[in-house]
Amino acid sequence: MTDQAVLALEDGNVFLGRSIGANGESVGEVVFNTAMTGYQEILTDPSYARQLVTLTYPHIGNTGCNPEDEESSRPMVAGLQ
C-alpha cells in the first residue's frame, strides 16, 4: 500500500499527495527550483540544507541516479516535493 503524504505551509495551505521517500516528518523553508535537469545534483547540494525543495519540472525521477553526479556525500535537502 502506498503511504500518505502531506505538505503543509505556515500560511495554512495544505497539499495532500503520495509518499515517495522515507516515512517521517521534516520541517524547513519551502523553496522552488525551476531547473529542467540535474535533480540529483540539486538534492545533494549542501546549500539546500534545511530546505524543502519543490521541483517545478514534471519529469523527475526518470533518469535515475549515478555516483558521478553526487555534489556531496549524501542528499542534503530536508525534503522533496
Binding site: E10, S19, V27, E29, L52
Partner: peptide
C-alpha cells in the same frame, strides 16, 4: 519562501502538519 513541513506515513494529520510548519 515560507516555513513548511512534509509528513509521510500510513496516515497523516494535516492540522498537526500545519503546526509543525509554523
Amino acid at each position: 519562501a515560507q516555513g513548511g513541513a512534509v509528513v509521510t506515513g500510513p496516515s497523516v494529520d494535516s492540522a498537526a502538519a500545519i503546526d509543525l510548519a509554523r
